[in-house]
């Protein structure tokens, strides 16, 4: 399960990034990193420049990893740990325990010779995956509203208007010790990853986002369009959008079993029913 750093990435990507401070804010506290193999968005908080500094610092901690063909979970965790230290130091230096940031996004990794995504999340920025025309929110918000939904105290349909929707329960810094959630997800040709700050999801619902992602074939065009649509729909918060397209994948030749399993999976993820196994047992 350990990946081989020397093996070139068996994945070809195209990506686009766009950010805007929005129509109501005077500063843009979002930061992002979009370069192989890392695609991250950080939404800073804390006010009075603390947010900008915190989000930029968190992103900076991942810069040394840029250029690697793939990354391991441990490498991402170590960078995250460095990000936390930096943000906490900034909070101390600013004398503001409020300095903090969200962080979400993907890193290219490999599992058994096949390209995978490491998805990481802390806070309420989001990572989505569009496959076969269907948008799936991969990350799960660390927000009060999300917790209320999961505990059954709030309906999903009311989440967008709940006055508590901006209360996040985990972050880097901001006096928070919360741990990041991780996902490991197979990367398939034709998939599109969307990483965004809540300035996008606060203005556009999933259906509108899906429509734009399906209409705009270029990754940069899609990122621009989503930011512009968020501005049109109010632009009440900073908005940052990364769009990453999987142009092609290959599986490891050194692992024939895994290579076999990947064949045909890129375009069909359905599991086909068969006769009841128990009939024979």
């Amino acid at each position: 399960m350990s990946h081989d750093q020397a093996v070139p990435a068996r994945i070809r990507l195209a990506w686009g990034a766009s950010t805007d401070r929005g129509r109501r804010r005077t500063t843009n506290e979002d930061s992002f990193l979009a370069d192989h193999p890392l695609f991250l968005v950080a939404d800073g908080m804390g006010g009075h420049e603390a947010g900008e500094v915190a989000s930029a610092a968190a992103i900076s901690a991942f810069l040394p990893l840029v250029g690697n063909p793939t990354l391991s979970v441990d490498e991402v965790r170590e960078a995250l740990s460095a990000a936390k230290s930096t943000v906490f130091a900034i909070a101390d230096a600013l004398g503001s325990g409020a300095a903090g940031t969200t962080l979400t996004g993907v890193a290219v990794t490999e599992q058994g010779g096949s390209p995978y995504w490491i998805v990481i999340n802390l806070g309420d920025s989001r990572t989505y995956m569009l496959a076969d025309g269907v948008l799936e929110q991969v990350s799960v918000d660390h927000s009060l509203v999300q917790e209320l939904i999961e505990s059954g105290e709030l309906e999903q349909s009311h989440a967008g208007v709940d006055p508590r929707r901006n209360v996040i329960t985990r972050a880097i810094g901001a006096g928070n010790q919360g741990e990041a959630d991780f996902w490991l997800i197979p990367a398939n040709t034709g998939e599109r990853i969307l990483i965004c700050s809540d300035g996008l999801t606060g203005e556009l619902d999933d259906a509108a986002i899906t429509m734009v992602l399906l209409e705009e074939t270029g990754a940069q065009d899609a990122a621009n369009r989503l930011v512009h649509e968020a501005l049109l729909h109010g632009g009440r918060d900073n908005v940052t959008v990364l769009v990453v397209d999987v142009l092609g994948t290959a599986t490891g030749e050194s692992d024939p079993e895994t290579a076999k399993t990947a064949v045909g999976d890129d375009y069909s993820d359905d599991t086909y029913p068969r006769e009841q196994l128990l009939a024979g047992g």
């Binding site: 741990e179 991780f182 996902w183 999976d265 086909y272």
Partner: peptide, 29 residues
């Protein structure tokens, strides 16, 4: 699984993912 994934786990508890062949796609991801 056929294309196993790990969902929402702490970074220090990443599971082993073992992919198995399933040409008929009987086996779930």
């Amino acid at each position: 699984g056929r294309r196993p994934r790990a969902t929402r786990v702490p970074g220090n508890q990443m599971p082993h993912l073992l992919a198995v062949p399933s040409p008929l796609q009987d086996i779930s991801r």
